[in-house]
Write a protein that binds this DNA or RNA. Structure first.
Length: 849
RNA sequence: GCCCGGAUGGCGGAAUUGGCAGACGCGCUGGCCUUAGGAGCCAGUGGCCGCAAGGCCGUGCAGGUUCAAGUCCUGUUCCGGGCACCA
């Protein structure tokens, strides 16, 4: 039998053996450590693509595979398009799980973490991710965290790092403090069923609020970020413009003075204020309760309620109530004395902890006033284009800004917006208030009472007080062989050789800070370190940052939306601080951000509890890394949640098998025509293949550059394969040179997504160059064009026929063909043709009656 | 309560600019090949009516704009996410 006549079988040698192929290329790639390294002094344009660094838990999950597959595809695509690509990877290696593991397995956190890193690195490499390991960053190593300490000292010098006693969120499971950002619905973000407690502790804070305005404003500089993320950050920063107004108590109550300053966004309603409401923890309340045990008991109850609600995480759930203090305060606008209350719905940590209560124009105040029978005084009436509505008695509470002031002295008749401006100006002029802006954003508390983190480089001297460690003495090394317990307080308190030190100023005995830094410090600037990972003189060299970051930062950052607030707002803050230090020129760290969706199975996020976890190792063992990667790209567009289906990856694996066999049977690199150009004037069958080929290049390239719908890229290659899979039956009609072009192109198009198989195919067709950096195929519009096009013909908007016309047919010719079509004629027979709409090259619609 | 997403066959999804709804894959059905099949190949596969040709219906729901709507507008339901006594 000749080769062509052999029956279609999958003999042993024809089977797509992913393990064999992948092992072969794995060995080759791993033998060259600089295989994926960015070029040092390149004349090529740079492209910095980054995926968020993982926590080294020791085991990769499918979410990782998906996240890093997306980044890897992009990096490889950019290489093929001639860019100098930086695609680094590192480890977010500090954090509590290492301590938990230490307790459980009696393994030191460092050992445990480094072993996990080694294991995960192996998995990453096995998946074929093109990471430049020469720039690997591991945040738990002193060569990295010394720069956390260095930045901390710089912040301390600039007054951005400060210490204060404050009420903090305390997770009893973690035995440490949490940042506001780490409290989710009143629970710990790591222990979703553990309520966060409130404690008073001395803490280090970073003054992120200094940049609140800029962090908000510069969101407008980030059009290539998902709108969702920008909105979340906007809400988190929570800018609110309003007015401060002093209400006079007519005499000192205690040390907190005789003035209650309220914050309001609606000073225009102040003539309707019928009480002042204080937060239970307001300092003036303390004064007022000092000699009134009865009042104190009631206030303590309010405090307890608030605390409880905060711990449950639903502060809105408690019923509003309060207590009258017996005192009155003077409204400076009309001189009226209004009663002062303490209420459980007033928060001490927003605004000034005091409000004016305007029941007629605020929902909460209305609810409160109704309960205690406080006066409701209407001072705004509606203004509407409808005269019926204008100045009519509105339903209460009337909270909109579209209104006119009444009963407001000299301000009556003004619009709300005008009144706010004029009344704020008056306050400033008379000295009883001013326009102001408050933020929801709080300073970032970074102290953690844990061992496995960056030591805060400060010491406490009895003589000199709080002193920074000298820069030359960095790093402050985290000691090893520490007994780790979760009993509250840092394990470092029990390490005398760490704890006891000398004062940098006087040389006398001093005690080290034992708190370590929040691990979000580590991830706030790690991506700069990749540009100069081994610098031991500075966090990085400015010139290298200037090259890789340019004016706008990382070209493409990819990660989960769960970091939309925490990591990304801290990183933006850190960049602005570094810019002010003169270290970087970019205002923002990340130009383009992409948030990929989660991996779901059986309708839920994969989790051990639900038992719906799919192990990447198992998938790789069964189908190979290419199939795992390709399926994670094929199952859904990358920004959407992806539903994992075990049969889906089988389908992808079958597809790769079909590709492999198509090459196996049709590659003839020794054929004299193999490298010749494809002849012109191809027979129809060959021409169809050539057209499909160029259409496919077009579709895939478009999707890679534009909307990143890798699922349709893969579908396009599948269609191409379906189109050409019949060539074996038509030997002769298809020129060898065209088969060669098809095979070269398929290898190139698959190279970013399924690198192992693509490299094997590239070799099978006799190519010697490095596929990883081979030029991306060019599409030829003329070759992709159709000779004839199908035009659907509708009658009254319903499809009735399809006519085939030459692709250069005029609208009139198309119309003529449509009207001449037999099916069309029979469906318009006996009816009056009102109109014929011809959409060029698209469609004909005949409107009849 | 406010702010973002989303809803398309049995399933994942496609339709990029208002112009043939269901590409591609899974699953299913039938066939081929095989000692065998968890391999491979071919064909069919939105629903309803019909032997067929063909017809009617169909993108969460109710309206609207248009020659033409999954796509635009108004309202609404459900699902997911974020924020939330924020003054």
């Amino acid at each position: 039998m000749t080769e062509q006549e052999q029956p279609v079988t999958t003999a042993r040698e024809e089977r797509y053996d992913a393990q064999r192929i992948e092992q072969k290329w794995f060995d080759r790639w791993m033998s060259d450590p600089s295989h994926y390294a960015a070029e040092a002094d390149s004349t090529k344009p740079k492209y910095y693509v980054l995926e968020m660094l993982p926590y080294p838990s020791g085991v990769l999950h499918m979410g990782h595979v998906r996240n890093y597959a997306i980044g890897d595809v992009l990096a490889r695509f950019m290489w093929m398009n001639g860019y100098n690509v930086l695609h680094p990877m590192g480890w977010d290696a500090f954090g509590l799980p290492a301590e938990n593991a230490a307790i459980k397995n009696n393994t030191p956190p460092r050992e445990w973490t480094l072993a996990n890193i080694a294991a995960m690195k192996k998995q990453f490499n096995r998946l074929g991710f093109a990471f430049d390991w020469s720039r690997e960053v591991t945040t738990c190593l002193p060569e990295y965290y010394r720069w956390n300490q260095w930045f901390f000292l710089k912040m301390f010098e600039s007054g951005l790092a400060y210490r204060k006693k404050s009420r903090v969120n305390w997770c009893p499971q973690c035995c440490t403090v949490l940042a506001n950002e780490q409290v989710v619905n009143g629970n710990c973000w790591r222990h979703e069923d553990t309520a966060v407690e409130q404690r008073e502790l001395e803490q280090w804070f970073l003054k992120i609020t200094k940049y609140a305005d800029e962090l908000l404003r510069d969101l407008d500089k980030l059009p290539a970020w998902p709108e969702r993320v920008r909105t979340m950050q906007r809400n988190w920063i929570g800018r609110s413009a309003g007015t401060l107004v002093d209400f006079d108590l007519g005499g000192k109550v205690g040390s907190a003075g005789s003035t209650i300053t309220v914050f309001t966004t609606r000073v225009d309603t102040i003539f309707g204020a019928t009480s002042v409401q204080l937060a239970p923890e307001h300092p003036i309340v303390k004064d007022m309760t000092a000699r009134d045990a009865d009042l104190r008991a009631k206030v303590d109850e309010l405090i307890a309620e608030q605390r409880k609600a905060r711990e449950i995480g639903d502060i809105g759930a408690i019923e509003k109530h309060g207590v009258f203090t017996g005192r009155y305060a003077k409204n400076p606008y009309n001189g009226e004395a209004v009663p002062v209350w303490v209420a459980n719905y007033i928060l001490m940590d927003y605004g000034t902890g005091a409000i004016m209560s305007v029941p007629a124009h605020d929902e909460r105040d209305y609810e409160f006033a109704a309960k205690y029978n406080l006066e409701v005084r209407l001072v705004i009436l509606p203004q509407s284009s409808d005269p019926e509505e204008t100045m009519a008695e509105p339903a209460l509470p009337f909270t909109t800004m579209d209104g006119i002031l009444v009963n407001s002295g000299a301000f009556s008749g003004l619009s709300c917006a005008d009144a706010i401006q004029k009344m704020s100006a008056l306050a400033e002029e008379k000295g009883f208030g001013k326009a102001t802006v408050t933020f929801r954003l709080r300073d970032w508390g970074i102290s953690r009472q844990r061992y496995w983190g960056t030591p805060i480089p400060m010491v406490y001297c009895n003589k000199d007080g709080v002193m920074p460690v000298a820069e030359k003495d960095l790093p402050v090394i985290l000691p090893e062989n520490v007994n780790i317990t979760l009993t509250g307080g840092s394990p470092l308190l029990n390490v005398p050789e760490f704890l006891n030190t000398t004062c940098p100023k006087c040389g006398g005995p001093a005690r080290r800070e034992t708190d370590t830094m929040d691990t979000f410090v580590d991830s706030s600037w790690y991506f700069y370190r990749y540009a100069d990972a081994h610098n031991d003189k500075a966090p990085f060299d400015k010139a290298k940052i200037a090259y890789w970051f340019g004016a706008e930062g990382i070209d493409q950052y990819i990660g989960g939306v769960e970091h939309a607030i925490l990591h990304l707002i801290y990183s933006r803050f850190w960049t602005k601080f570094m810019r002010d230090l003169g270290l970087v020129k970019n205002d923002e760290p990340v130009k383009r951000l992409f948030s990929q969706g989660m991996v779901i199975k059986d309708g839920a996020k994969m989790s051990k509890n639900l038992g719906n976890v799919v192990s990447p190792d198992e998938m790789i063992a069964r189908y190979g890394a290419d199939s795992a990667r390709l399926y994670s790209l094929f199952a859904a567009p990358p920004d959407r949640d992806m539903d994992w289906q075990d049969t889906g990856i089988e389908g992808i694996h079958r597809f790769l098998g079909r590709v492999y066999r198509f090459f196996l049977r049709n590659a003839q690199p020794e054929h004299p025509d193999w490298r010749k150009p494809v002849p012109e004037n191809l027979p129809a069958e060959a021409r169809a293949i050539q057209r499909k080929l160029h259409q496919t290049i077009h579709r895939v390239t478009d999707d890679f550059q534009g909307r990143w719908h890798f699922n349709t890229c893969i579908a396009a290659v599948m269609e191409l394969l379906n189109e050409v899979s019949g060539v074996e039956d038509s030997k002769g009609a298809i020129p060898v040179s065209l088969i060669a072009e098809v095979q070269r192109t398929i290898a190139l198009l698959l190279a970013p997504m399924a690198p192992y198989l693509a490299h094997e195919l590239w070799e099978m067709i006799g190519e010697k160059s490095n596929l990883m950096k081979a030029p991306w195929p060019k599409y030829d519009a003329a070759l992709a064009a159709l000779d004839e096009i199908e035009i659907p013909v509708q009658v009254n908007g319903k499809l009735r026929s399809v006519v085939v016309v030459p692709s250069d047919a005029t609208d009139d010719q198309v119309k003529a063909a449509a009207v001449a079509d037999e099916k069309v004629r029979s469906s318009i027979a006996g009816k009056e043709v009102l109109k014929v709409i011809v959409v060029s090259k698209k469609l004909v619609n005949i409107v009849v009656r």
